[in-house]
Amino acid sequence: MEVAEVISITKPSSSRPFEDVDDDNDSDVEMNNTTNQSIVTPGELITDDPIWMKGHGTYFINDKTYSSVAGTVSRVNRLLSVIPIRGRYQPETGDHIVGRITEVGNKRWKVDIGAKQDAVLMLGSVNLPGGILRRKSETDELQMRNFLKEGDLLNAEVQTIFNNGIASLHTRSLKYGKLRNGIFLKVPSSLIIKSKNHAFDLTGNISCVLGVNGYIWLYKTNVNNPTSNNNNNNSNNSNNPSITRLEEESSWEIYSDKNDTTITNSIRSNITRYYNIIKALSYCELGITEQRISMGYEASLAYVNLGSLNDKDAMETICQDIINNEKMRGIN
């Protein structure tokens, strides 16, 4: 029996394989200059030019702007801010996120979204059984725990950010709501690259909600209700306007805790495959996108034994494959 089948014990290594990817292209001096300019540490002087407006992650003394976090400098028009390399998720309006209910309160739920404070989800910001046009009643208030309770996972959109920094969420769309038929995993939110679409279908009958906050849900593709944008087409094709469909779908089922009974073992192992790919991307600190997950899937097909994807070497190989693949396709 192979030892590697049971356990892999390695020495700690400080070198990451991607640090020297581009080393052979340019002279080192030039490289260093460009990188040094954009990465700052706390207390470092960014500029002494007073025309800049001070954004997040900065402070100023006597017109001089310093960084208050370790991260990359971002200049948007005249706004100067430093985006921290690590740190908690900072919610922004419109972000598609995955969260977990932590508390049921007065007409609202508290939701853990990996930010500094728990977000709130108001009772008025969710679809209730019986359709969108229904008024919220006192009965609804009393049975809030029947809709969503502590521990439940949901995907939602950030509706607004209150003055105190707390995010307010809503789930008033069919693509949001309670999550079923799959598994949850967490990656640092800084690795998630914002894009138009954070919910997508993948090869192998799997769908993914890639929360901007780094919370990810992998699940079996719902046959009746594909996650990707083409469900607009579906509803347009049918005679009824989308509101009617919403009403139908907004029965108690949207708050059901029951998984599909037909999740096959091949779907389950596909989910674990994607799980490992996302873990690998996170281990190598590569930004996570739909495209990279798909490329990782292809690269992972070389591994018959999925369990071997837990090892450092395998994770690094997969990520190297993805980077090579991107170079070939001329992305970046």
Partner: peptide
């Protein structure tokens, strides 16, 4: 979902580890 996956024969664990596989260690 997790329970159903783990009672399969063989168990389908979240990280795709086999029943007798440890998590990788650095020592």
């Amino acid at each position: 979902y997790l329970y159903e996956s783990l009672v399969q024969k063989p168990a389908i664990r979240p990280g795709a580890r086999s029943d007798h596989q440890f998590r990788p260690l650095e020592a």
